[in-house]
Computed example of a mutant assay.
Amino acid sequence: MHLLLSGIVGSTAYGLAHADSDLDRLGLFAAPTEQFHGLHRPVESHVTTAPDTTLHEAAKWCRLALNGNPTASELVWLPAELYEVRTPLGEELIGIRRSFLSERAVRNAYLGYATQQFRKLSSRDSSDEPSRRRASKHARHLVRLVRQGLALHETGELGIRLADPAQVRELGERYADRPDLAVDLLADAESRFSRPGVLPAEPDEAPVESWLRRVRAAHLSTPS
């Protein structure tokens, strides 16, 4: 495995971490090019829990990002100090990060994930304290996803570190107790996503394809 780019993501990156928060890492790697020519394709993701790390093969990461996946996409928008591995090819990927963006994918992914969090909030057992803590987390994710998605839609920029984490935590507590209060937030988001934004209708796949081909060329096996 050739790690191309990795960094610290999740609550630490958003500014929402507390003393008991886990440290989450996300990265992408290049499998040796020759492995794509046999009967079995190489494993596309490696996930561990000690420490909490997710690594995606370069092609899989590109597909996730082209579909607007919020978790994968944040890897190329991190503050500089949160990167732990940043190779020349990883640097190139950061340089073409806007090529992955499209209006439809961003709307579907961010609003879709936020709606999933709302459903989890609405179905929780209000008498169960562990469920209450999970609900607060779901609510914080809901608020974050709405804000990040709308920023992408309206400005073309993905801000990872939240400007007001204390307010997001407070909203998380409020929505955990009263999920119905989040209905207006989602309705406003749907309204704003329905207006013209700055993103193109389709992603620009040409730079992505070119980058991936350079990755494959760089990781051809040397004959023995």
Rank of each mutant, 00 (worst) to 15 (best):
S99F: 02
E74S: 01
S102H: 10
E129W: 12
H37L: 15
H40N: 12
L101H: 09
L152D: 06
E157T: 14
W77T: 03
H153N: 01
D52L: 04
P130N: 04
S99Y: 02
R124E: 07
D128W: 14
V85I: 12
W61K: 03
G38R: 09
G112A: 05
R98A: 08
E154R: 03
L121N: 00
N108V: 05
L89F: 03
P70G: 09
H56M: 13
A105I: 02
Q148C: 04
S127K: 11
H46R: 10
E157K: 11
A163E: 15
L39I: 10
D164N: 15
N69P: 10
L111N: 01
I96R: 08
E157W: 11
N69V: 08
G156F: 12
W77Y: 11
E57N: 06
I94M: 12
S136E: 14
R144N: 02
E92W: 09
H46E: 13
R119S: 14
A72Y: 07
L39F: 14
T155D: 05
L75E: 07
S102D: 06
I96W: 07
T87Q: 05
K120D: 08
A59I: 04
L66Y: 00
S99G: 15
A105R: 03
H40D: 12
L78H: 00
E154L: 13
R147D: 02
R97L: 08
T49H: 11
T48R: 07
H153V: 05
E92H: 10
E103M: 09
R41D: 08
R97Q: 10
A163G: 12
K120H: 14
A59Q: 11
D164V: 06
I160L: 08
T155A: 06
G95A: 15
Q148P: 01
V47D: 13
V106L: 08
N69K: 07
P70E: 13
G149W: 00
R97M: 10
V106F: 07
P79F: 09
H46V: 14
S122C: 12
P79W: 07
S127D: 08
L150S: 03
G156M: 05
E157L: 12
V146K: 01
E92R: 15
L152V: 02
S127L: 15
K120Y: 13
L145M: 10
Q116F: 09
A59V: 14
A105N: 13
G159P: 10
I160H: 03
L111S: 00
S136C: 13
E57D: 13
L162S: 09
